[in-house]
Simulated scan of single mutants.
Amino acid sequence: MSHCELSEIIMQGKTIVVTGGTSGIGEVAALALAGMGARIVLVARNKGRGEATLARLEQQAPGVGHRLHYADLAQLAEMKRVAVEIAAAEPRIDILINNAGAMFANREVTKDGFEKTFATDHLSYFVLTAGLRERLLAAGSARIINTSSHAHKTAQFDINDLQSTKNYTSFLAYGRAKLANILFTRELARRTAGTGVTVNCLHPGFVATRFGDEAGGLIGHVIGLAKVLAISPEEGAKTLIYLATAPEVATKSGEYFYKSRRTAPARAGRDDAMARALWEKSVALTGVDWV
Rank of each mutant, 00 (worst) to 15 (best):
M1C: 09
C4K: 15
E5V: 15
L6Q: 14
I9E: 15
I10S: 09
M11H: 07
K14R: 13
T15D: 04
I16V: 12
I16G: 06
V17A: 00
V18Y: 00
T19D: 04
G24T: 10
A29P: 04
A30T: 08
A30P: 10
L31H: 09
A34W: 06
A34C: 04
G37T: 03
G37V: 02
R39S: 05
I40T: 07
V41S: 10
V41H: 11
R45L: 11
N46C: 07
R49P: 14
G50K: 02
G50I: 03
E51A: 12
E51M: 13
L54K: 13
E58T: 14
Q60R: 15
G65K: 04
R67H: 10
L68T: 09
Q75S: 15
A77F: 02
E78Y: 07
M79F: 04
K80V: 03
K80P: 00
V82H: 09
I86G: 01
A87W: 04
A89E: 11
I95D: 03
I97S: 03
N98C: 05
N99F: 07
N106Y: 09
K111Q: 15
D112V: 07
D112A: 12
G113M: 04
G113Y: 08
F114W: 11
K116I: 13
K116Q: 08
D121K: 10
Y125M: 11
V127F: 04
R133L: 05
E134M: 04
R135G: 02
A138L: 02
G140A: 10
I145M: 05
S148E: 14
A151I: 14
K153P: 03
T154A: 14
F157E: 11
D158Y: 00
D161Q: 03
S164Y: 01
S164T: 11
L172E: 14
G175Y: 06
A180Y: 02
N181E: 10
N181T: 03
I182N: 03
F184R: 05
R186E: 12
G196N: 05
V197K: 07
N200S: 05
C201N: 08
L202S: 02
G205C: 08
G205I: 14
E214S: 14
G224Q: 10
L225C: 10
S232I: 05
K238I: 07
L243Q: 06
K252W: 11
Y256P: 01
K259P: 02
K259L: 11
S260W: 14
R261M: 06
A266P: 01
R267G: 08
G269K: 09
D272I: 08
D272G: 12
D272H: 12
K281T: 06
V283Y: 07
G287P: 01
D289E: 13
W290N: 13
W290V: 09
V291D: 15
V291L: 15
